[in-house]
Design a protein around this nucleic acid. Structure first.
Lengths: 147, 147
DNA sequence: AAGTAAATAATTGTGTACAATAAGATTGTG
DNA sequence: CACAATCTTATTGTACACAATTATTTACTT
């Protein structure tokens, strides 16, 4: 029979490879993103803005699973860089509108090259990639229910 | 035809769900681990020690994909807690031997309960879990080649 | 044996992450 | 209207995570 310590062995954990994998991929993003002047977290913020142009800090946090403790200082940096603007919403002064600036929009042209550089570093075929993505999204959906 | 911005949309990224999934699962570990007095990173360090009893800081870093900048202060904390001991290796004074203490060994009895608490929060069936684990390990192996 | 290179851990600096709390605006209720 | 509850962002404190650098020890080379 299996001993009771079997499940706290590192090799039997699901979370550990998940943790390592995410960490190492984000680390590989570092160089190509450095070339355009972003960190990974800043990159995903910009990705949302390149698509939506504008949204509130709260909506951004919901989309990226980040709270104000992370977003507020990060958005301050992006604002200092001139990539975004922040404005209190006239209709509701509690909310802060995040707006893509012209400079931020221009950065999109540089950013389109990043996925090309990153392609291939994962080493999965498209089917495996799709499969992985589906499994991850299933976990995320399930965890969202737990709240 | 697909426009050139298609691949920098958040929803088409593989890294993003990976990043969110790892982050959120580690966050869910917080409470159960807090009960035994560990953070997630400290937990995986202890997991290695519960299995090996002793190894060098370098070997630990290799096993966990962590560098000295992360490990050195973390190990200092675990030492202050009395969970481990640190000793310069006699045969090679550059290396530091990390040794599980009696108190650290006792913690293992509490820790065996953690995976039970975490089970079910992922929401995948065993087959899907195994499949996911395999895909993640394939990526990790592939990235290791890149160095 | 001397001097250089390599290995190993520690330190420094920057940037997340998040829980807990605070501050300010808005909404709801008596 | 008063005022409590709620919403939203900002702040504080703790803990990673890693690149770059430093300090110390060991190995190598001549």
């Amino acid at each position: 029979m299996t001993d009771k310590y079997e499940q706290i062995k590192l090799e039997n954990q699901l979370c550990f490879p998940l943790y390592v994998c995410a960490k190492e991929i984000v680390r590989l993003y570092r160089k190509p993103l450095e070339n355009i002047g972003l960190t990974y977290t800043q990159y995903i913020v910009m990705m949302v803005l390149w698509e939506k142009e504008t949204l509130t800090e709260g909506e951004l946090g919901e989309a990226l699973y980040l709270d104000s403790g992370t977003l507020t200082p990060l958005l301050k940096k992006l604002e200092n860089e001139g990539l975004i603007k922040k404005e209190r919403l006239k209709s509701n002064e509690r909310k802060v509108q995040i707006i893509l600036s012209e400079k931020g929009r221009e950065m999109k042209e540089e950013a389109v090259k990043v996925p090309d550089v990153m392609d291939g570093c994962v080493g999965l075929c498209p089917e495996e990639g799709a499969q992985l993505k589906k499994l991850l999204e299933k976990i995320i959906d399930h965890m969202r229910e737990l709240v």
